[in-house]
Amino acid sequence: MSRTIDVRQERIKRHGFSGRFVHWTVALSTVVLVISGLGQLPLFKRYFVDTLPGLGWTSDFGVTLQLHYFAAAALTLAVVYHVIFHSLRREFDIVPRRGDLKESYQIIKAMFGRGEEPDSDKYLAEQRVAYAFIGGAILLVIATGYLKAVKNLPGVELSYWLLWTTTTLHNLAMFLIIMGIGGHLAAFLIKENRALLPGMFTGRVSLAYARERHCLWCEGLGLSGRSGSASDPDAGGREGAAAGGAAMASPGQTGDSRAA
């Protein structure tokens, strides 16, 4: 096997089980929540969706509300797991940083051939911004959703102002989440981003891609970054290890690249 092919086939671990568990639990529960939530509006009977084979349940408010509760529990579990797990491990790679909006603009410009894309850490600046947007909307939907669930209990009467505010913010959060999901999926229309897709399935992405686009991350792991991979992957790895890097890699993540 030639060295070039070898390098291209090498993959770097980007997401562990916890990351993928959280991502897919959030994704699946959110889809169920959006569908069952829209069913509360109510839409499915009016637009004949419930006449489609197997979708008769969509116009049953009892069924869709119970589904909403189950999915809400799954979403909450995943979000709490995510926050606690990464806080304990002190992994904050995806938390937005100062200058991320400006850097996101540069990245988007570079995608259209204008200017050079800045070096990125484990996550692109635009990914950190997107995380904050979707994460904020999810926290809002959970907080207002819990209040709505409490309100449904017998004997609980919220003041009308609080009831209306909660309902309106919940609806707004749903709208923001749908927009966020749309933006998240639309990102994969751009070819450069597609190399990240395997990461959420297998946990791994191409090492060559990571070195090219997430060179600060690679350097933080002690692997070669963009400049190193251009000539000798090994050389970059040693330099990167010395340089440190911004990624908050846990101990044990550093080491020599098998690309050597």
């Binding site: 291209r8 090498e10 993959r11 792991l221 044990g252 690309a259």
Partner: peptide
């Protein structure tokens, strides 16, 4: 297991 020497997060295709 932190603190122990671990292999790098790289795998072959």
């Amino acid at each position: 297991g932190q603190g122990q020497e671990e292999p790098p997060p790289i795998s072959s295709g």
